[in-house]
Amino acid sequence: MKRVVSVSLGSSRRDHRVEVELLGEKFEISRRGTDGDFDKALALLKELDGRVDAIGLGGIDVFLYAGKKRYAVEDGLKLMAAVKKTPVVDGSGLKNTLERETVYYLREHTDLLPPGVKVLMVSAVDRFGMAEALNELGCEVTFGDLIFSAGIPYPIRTIGELEEIAARILPEMVKLPFHMLYPTGKKQDSQDEEKVQKYGHYYQEARVIAGDYHLVRRYMPGLTGQTIVTNTTTAADVDFLREKGAGCLVTTTPEFQGRSFGTNVMEGVMVALLHKPWAEITPGEYLDLLKRLNFKPRILPLA
């Protein structure tokens, strides 16, 4: 049996373990949260190195993208560097493929993403493929990177402006401790009520809310039937979204035993299946494997 472990800076309350069979191979997939404790994450990564088939880094992005530029988060690189033998991934390679495909799938097979629909992406630099696909299909997208990651009430309306601002700020911002830019640990279990009041209207003005689940959750006000496109949701998260008034949940990663895993986990599984070094895997190979696995977005009506 192959073992894939996701080591996350997120809350340990979301830990879980499942066994699945994919393309004839048995996998044990587990997630271990370190409650925002960076040193604990480092120690766990060192402990797992060489003892499992692939490691995913959760609760942190190692690579952010805007246009053709890639920005490496220093805290993420430190975590990656702790693993010497086992392939270690952050999900960014798969995101670029899988989440584009999710957008195309929703356009082709559902009425959830009609042309001109208003979409709020709570953060785009961590899933630039999805941002580009939404833009390409003529959605009216608001990129909330500044609003929700830096507390600056400035909605970015175009991919061009997103790239321009990213080029100015990301080369330096990625050097800051990651917890200054993204909710880690216990912050993932609560909402920021002040910002919900202040920025909730961006959610209410949209029909589709897309992006990282922890950001989506942290600032979510009461909704009126909006569609949520995200992943890493648990059964409790589904209840939360239903209570908030979301109309539909789309998860980009498949559900295993009630849980949609993070892209870092799925990328770890794919690396273990492909038997190739992570850096050598092309988007085409991910795409081909996604087809062989018959991975499709999960669409869950909530109303």
Partner: peptide, 14 residues
């Protein structure tokens, strides 16, 4: 602190 850093980068960043 993040906001102040941001302002500085928006003025002087590339």
């Amino acid at each position: 602190i993040v906001r102040l850093d941001f302002i500085s980068l928006m003025i002087w960043g590339e």
